[in-house]
């Protein structure tokens, strides 16, 4: 279906694209190992977070927590804020985002374009600080509606009800599902759905590994694990640094023509690693990975230019 009543209605049903050139070659007679990219940049504001944002707002409206003209508060490194800002604009809410100051300029511009107010949290501590500050601000402004994507079951449910079923419908032969780990909503929701359909499906997390400033906690007890996280849904979990992520983003662009955001590079790196293991073991595989967003919001970092390298991302929250 390509006709929709409104922009919001066009959410989801994103294409699943084969990667014929980037999928590894297998020896003659050996089973195929294929990579599939789910293009989440084809959502209304250009990222997978539209699913989370619409689900959390719908849920808050339904429960009566979100009343007309209310103010929504959310910690975000960009995409969730951008999704919420668009929906808030269309539905008549105000939005306050708490965002680390070390994020790309395009994310700020997009948030402001849709009318969000941004409160910056310090670079040191990365999103940890944004979450901590948002919790404090929420306590000081009890009339604001704190959606809190890290602990809001509507986030997981969105992926259980949409992302997972879409993949299953398009590729019931799926053997591996690879996605980014942040709030954990995508992996928990879609992963749970897919495992219920076929318990053999491997659910693999790729988390971005940033420069040291982002891990600059005051003490270890200030660490953070999202309330939504359930390790039993995952099969494996990889940490991927900026260098590998940038290398894969460029490879995806060069080889398959797909212009993805930097976090997708981390996810693709894990997917290609797993694909290589399957080839070595002579096992066939249909590996689906998530393209979280396109590269537009990261052009100012310079990493897409020919000589752009990962060093420029040091100290930045690039995912």
């Amino acid at each position: 279906m390509t006709r929709y009543e409104s922009l919001e209605d066009s959410l989801g049903h994103t294409p699943l694209i084969g990667l014929p050139k980037l999928s590894p070659k297998t020896p003659a007679g050996a089973p195929r190992v294929r990579l599939w990219a789910k293009l989440e940049d084809r959502n209304p504001t250009g990222s997978i977070k539209d699913r989370t944002a619409i689900a959390m707002i719908d849920d808050a409206e339904k429960s009566g927590k979100l009343k007309p003209a209310a103010t929504i508060l959310e910690p975000t490194s960009g995409n969730t804020g951008i999704s919420l800002a668009m929906i808030a604009k269309v539905r008549g809410y105000k939005l306050v985002c708490v965002m680390p100051e070390n994020t790309s300029v395009e994310r700020r511009q997009l948030l402001e374009m849709w009318g969000a107010k941004i409160i910056y949290s310090p670079a040191a501590g990365g999103s940890n600080e944004a979450v901590r500050m948002a919790k404090e601000i929420s306590a000081q402004n009890p009339e604001w509606v704190f959606l809190y994507q890290y602990g809001n079951p509507a986030n997981t449910l969105a992926h259980y009800q949409t992302t997972g079923p879409e993949i299953w419908e398009d590729l019931p032969e799926i053997t591996h599902f690879v996605a980014g780990l942040g709030t954990t909503g995508t992996l928990m929701g879609a992963g749970k759905f897919l495992r219920e359909k076929n318990p053999e499906i491997a659910v693999i997390a790729a988390e971005p590994r940033y420069g040291e400033v982002v891990y600059g906690l005051r003490n270890l007890d200030a660490g953070f694990v999202p309330e939504l996280y359930d390790a039993s849904i995952l099969t494996r979990r990889f940490s991927v640094g900026a260098e590998d992520s940038v290398k894969r983003v460029k490879e995806l662009l060069e080889v398959e023509g797909i212009f993805a955001g930097i976090s997708t590079g981390a996810i693709l790196h894990a997917a290609i690693g797993v694909a290589g293991e399957c080839v070595a073991a002579g096992i066939g595989a249909e590996i689906v990975f998530i393209v979280c967003d396109a590269g537009w919001k990261y052009l100012s970092t310079g990493i897409y230019s020919n000589d752009g390298d990962a060093d420029v991302l040091e100290g930045q929250l690039w995912a």
Binding site: K49, T184, S239
Partner: peptide
């Protein structure tokens, strides 16, 4: 690769392996 999915403390090692210790932070894609 996260050791919690590789046997945690009983995860096996070979010469030249690289181990990274990191605090858990809200650092991901959000």
């Amino acid at each position: 690769e996260d050791v919690r999915f590789m046997g945690s403390l009983s995860a096996t090692l070979k010469a030249g392996d690289s181990i990274t210790i990191l605090p858990a932070v809200a650092g991901g894609c959000m």
